[in-house]
Simulated scan of single mutants.
Amino acid sequence: MAYQIIPLSISAVDNIACPHCQQNVIDWIQEQYIQPCEHTLFIAMDIGFEYITDDFEQTMQRSVDDLHAHDDQVNMFAEITQSTYPNYLIFKSDLGAQGYFRYIGFTA
């Protein structure tokens, strides 16, 4: 397994910081709340990607465009965990809608 899942016990409106540099990659104070740092590989929700690096997308079995075109049929967690990226962390947090989650990938 190339990834490690880390469930976060936080609310949907809490900031999320990078485990390496401590920058808030989800920062609700900012107008653009997505603030990826150099360690961020992707920020995704069950309904699609908010951010993804080219390096990570190239390791996925399907392109982001393909996933977004078929978002009603996609299991986002399954898609990101099938990546061949060598080692990465996935922070999983509640999205605020029942049954939906946010996934943030960081370099290990």
Rank of each mutant, 00 (worst) to 15 (best):
I16Y: 00
Y51D: 01
Q73C: 05
Q23M: 11
G96R: 13
R102F: 03
V64R: 14
H68I: 07
D14A: 15
Q30D: 15
Y100E: 15
Q58T: 06
I104L: 13
V74Q: 08
M45H: 14
Q22H: 15
F77Y: 14
L8Y: 02
T53N: 07
D72W: 11
Y100W: 09
I10Q: 07
L8D: 00
Q58S: 13
L8S: 00
D66L: 03
P19E: 02
E38G: 04
I5C: 05
Q30F: 08
D65P: 00
S93H: 11
I43E: 01
N15L: 03
L89G: 02
D55F: 01
Y100K: 12
M60C: 09
S9Q: 13
Y88W: 11
Q35H: 06
D54R: 09
L67F: 08
D65A: 15
N15C: 13
T107D: 12
T81M: 06
A17V: 04
I16L: 10
E38R: 09
I26D: 00
D65N: 08
P86N: 11
E31H: 15
A97R: 11
P36N: 10
H39I: 06
N15I: 04
F101I: 05
Y85A: 03
V74S: 01
A2I: 09
R62V: 12
S63H: 04
Y33C: 05
Q58H: 06
G96F: 05
I10P: 03
N75C: 13
Y88A: 08
Q4E: 14
N15T: 04
L95V: 00
L8F: 00
A12L: 04
E38P: 01
N24Y: 13
I6P: 01
M76F: 11
S9L: 05
E31M: 10
R62H: 12
I34C: 08
C21Q: 08
I90H: 05
E31F: 12
Q82N: 13
D27M: 07
I26T: 06
C37T: 03
A69K: 07
A12Q: 12
D72Q: 08
C18M: 09
I6R: 09
F106S: 03
I90S: 04
L67Q: 02
Y3V: 09
Y33Q: 07
L67V: 03
I5G: 04
S83K: 03
D71G: 05
I6H: 04
D55Y: 01
I26C: 05
S9P: 01
A108R: 08
Q98L: 09
G48Q: 09
D94C: 11
N24T: 04
H20F: 06
D54K: 14
H68A: 08
D66S: 10
I80A: 03
P19H: 15
F56V: 06
T81A: 09
D65I: 07
I34G: 01
A2Y: 02
D55S: 10
Q98T: 07
V74C: 07
A97F: 11
Q61C: 01
Y100A: 08
P86D: 14
A2P: 10
